[in-house]
């Protein structure tokens, strides 16, 4: 009996107990931080919209909320922001990357062709390679330019339709370019219905 208990019941019981304790602890932590995590996610999207619109803000949850609520209006399928008296249109775009989907916000001026900015909402490319599309210099180079873009070697773009590609990540750069190229036509379709 005691042998049976020691060999079979006790290990099972022990494992069960450990599992329960671990799950209760992690579930507790998860529930306690749930609202915070949700708020963070919202804040991320809002910050991407502000970046795409070219608005400046204080980089905290509160700072982002303040500027967002003051200048951004949510429309059906897109956002508008008033910057220096002019309206800018921000279009959410989703498309394939090398590994997973890339989700961006593309900001356009009133002409719906010139970019006011581009910001990444989410991406899952390789760190150090495709992941470098998140680096500020890469997204910043779209501001003031007009598509369709041509990718050139890193550090050599000079004309208004040229953007630097990322060395070692030509595929991801290409996917990103394709995504931004869709911005103008997508904007016309959603906003003007053509």
């Amino acid at each position: 009996m005691s042998e049976f208990y020691k060999e079979r019941i006790y290990p099972l019981l022990f494992m069960f107990l450990i599992t329960v304790v671990c799950i209760v602890l992690t579930a507790g932590a998860h529930i306690l931080t749930f609202d915070r995590a949700k708020a963070n996610e919202l804040s991320f999207t809002r910050r991407a919209i502000l970046d795409a619109a070219g608005l400046s803000y204080e980089n905290t949850t509160l700072g982002i909320e303040e500027v967002y609520l003051a200048s951004v209006t949510e429309e059906e399928g897109y956002y508008t922001a008033i910057v220096d008296g002019k309206t800018r249109y921000i279009i959410p775009l989703i498309g394939p990357g090398l590994w997973g989907t890339i989700e961006i916000m593309a900001g356009l001026e009133e002409d719906l062709t010139t970019f006011s900015g581009v910001a990444i909402v989410s991406q899952t490319e390789t760190p150090g390679l495709g992941g470098r599309i998140e680096e500020p210099w890469f997204t910043a180079q779209f501001a003031g330019k007009r598509g369709p873009f041509t990718l050139v070697e890193e550090g050599t773009s000079s004309r208004t339709h040229e953007v630097d590609g990322i060395t070692g990540a030509s595929r991801t750069s290409e996917y990103f370019k394709n995504l931004t190229d869709r911005a103008a036509s997508e904007a016309r379709r959603i906003i003007r219905g053509v």
Partner: peptide, 13 residues
């Protein structure tokens, strides 16, 4: 490790 993940997700998103 899950705790680390949860803390990071909530406080250093």
């Amino acid at each position: 490790v899950i705790l680390v993940d949860i803390i990071l997700k909530a406080y250093y998103p």
